[in-house]
Design a protein around this nucleic acid. Sequence first.
DNA 1: CTGTTAGCGCATTCAG
DNA 2: CTGAATGCGCTAACAG
Lengths: 332, 332
Amino acid sequence: MATIKDVAKEAGVSVATVSRVVNKSPKASQASIEAVTKAMAKLGYRPNANARALVSQSSNTVGVLVADVSDPFFGSMVKAIDHVAREQGKQILIGNGYHDAEDERNALELLINSRCEAIIVHAKGLSDEELTAYVKEVPGLVVINRHIPQIATRCIALDNFKGAYLATDYLIRQGHKKIACIASSRDIEDTQARIEGYLAALKDNGIALSKSYIEYGEPNSDGGESAMTNLLSKSLDMSAVFAYNDNMAAGAMMVLEQNGIAVPKQMSVVGFDDGILARFLNPGLTTVRYPIEMMAERAARQALSLSRGDVIDEETAVFSPTLVRRSSVASI
Amino acid sequence: MATIKDVAKEAGVSVATVSRVVNKSPKASQASIEAVTKAMAKLGYRPNANARALVSQSSNTVGVLVADVSDPFFGSMVKAIDHVAREQGKQILIGNGYHDAEDERNALELLINSRCEAIIVHAKGLSDEELTAYVKEVPGLVVINRHIPQIATRCIALDNFKGAYLATDYLIRQGHKKIACIASSRDIEDTQARIEGYLAALKDNGIALSKSYIEYGEPNSDGGESAMTNLLSKSLDMSAVFAYNDNMAAGAMMVLEQNGIAVPKQMSVVGFDDGILARFLNPGLTTVRYPIEMMAERAARQALSLSRGDVIDEETAVFSPTLVRRSSVASI
DNA sequence: CTGTTAGCGCATTCAG
DNA sequence: CTGAATGCGCTAACAG
């Protein structure tokens, strides 16, 4: 592969001149520009991004750590980040952490070693302490979808409690009293916050329900299926279910349908995320909107600013979920 | 940020020794290993991946060009590639091309400039010629989801014709004769191949249908909605629809439902891709499976082999789609 | 406007 | 087993 030297020789100029035209420096004569351009084309020259990053101390990339790129939720997140990255002429480097501490650590260190200017981290496996250490080490690192009080200004999070409260309260206002909860079996703060929101809404409305109204499962459709099945098996008196996310809600709805229980007529269902599924489920899923694109964009801009050493205006970085009404809830 | 020199000084050894322990070279004494390890920890040393890539002439990354990461189809593709990349200790670099020639070119050149060892390209905007030029220039470059005869051994593609034929033929065997086709308005080979497959199945079964049975739309749910609406408006006599992909099928199903036309009782629907949606649509969508994970894995392995200069066994790289039966088709 | 030169951080000969 | 020295490809003074 041709280097800058080869181009210089071919064009009969110095490497400095080649560098100038490559970087569109104003101080380069028309003649040089032409000669160099021609030589570059002839040799198929490709400026080596690594050499460039090394000398200019800037890789022009932004790193993203997600749990799993194949999950549409993270797809949206990455896309939003890519949007602002492109805007600033930067490339994206992606790592998958699969919600596992070891994987997250490996992926994150690779991003750090690559000297990404900015890094947006979604991590649920790493401890607060470890994450805090990374945040302190890397100036352009921002944590998304997680709130760590000690480094609040470096976190972009969603108010999960509020989202769950919103959903449950809405159900109550539609006349429901016996509201089950399909929770995630994964032990992360989101799980806990959403259960608390659900419980708080119940309590604030003077509704007391036994613990059996909460059933756990993996946060995917299979988990939703099994949780719903368990709920049904317990012969609980219930008219509505609040699910941890849309996938679980979808699984629950499948079980409901298989058991001849009509949604929403006989059972109302509310999800969480407002992902791609929500629109297409039949009936359309009433759900809590997780403004991930907005959050990701904010995170990316903030991370980039931070990496430049800009001061960040300390406006709140806790986003609020909203309720999206579709057709999976009936009033009674 | 600490460099290898700093570590060497701190540990009281030479940079060569530090390099040896970082790279786990066997020729390093236990004493050195300990001293260096301690120094690295103390200074928070992070080997600079760019410097490493520069000197070792290998970036340890594999590049992926997709149309849009937020599309679950590409999410699956990227995940499969990431899987084999991790297996070989490599990182993934992602570029979005949005099916636009200019964007694809920019993204691809960034990947090339970053000296990715292997590059897997999904491009629908670039011409065969331009793509061929890239393939010839970069040894580890493989084209996915596209078949270019001149560089067949560097392409991993799906037999779109066969998929469409399969779907249409299946519909016919269920007794359908008036089968509409919801095609993509995007002018890429896939569109054409699928229409041809649909037409061929019709013809082979002695069914002649007017051109109005084919309606076009953007390859997403909105496009499916408008295409289905148009089909309905034409008052065509039809009992089944074959859609370009699952998203369009989903849009069509929504329109059908809104118009009180029951699926599959009054109208059968078949999709294409077998994406995440297919399972959750109600009724479950009968569709053509696009084995993208398998193809992506194959592409990644091949690209990596190619980059190493290994010889590739020339087994066919055209994958076959299969039919996945769910509940959106009725026999009449 | 242009060329010379000195590193950027690291891996790797080649002597010792 | 270890260290000194070289260069990967490029940018940025600096001096002409």
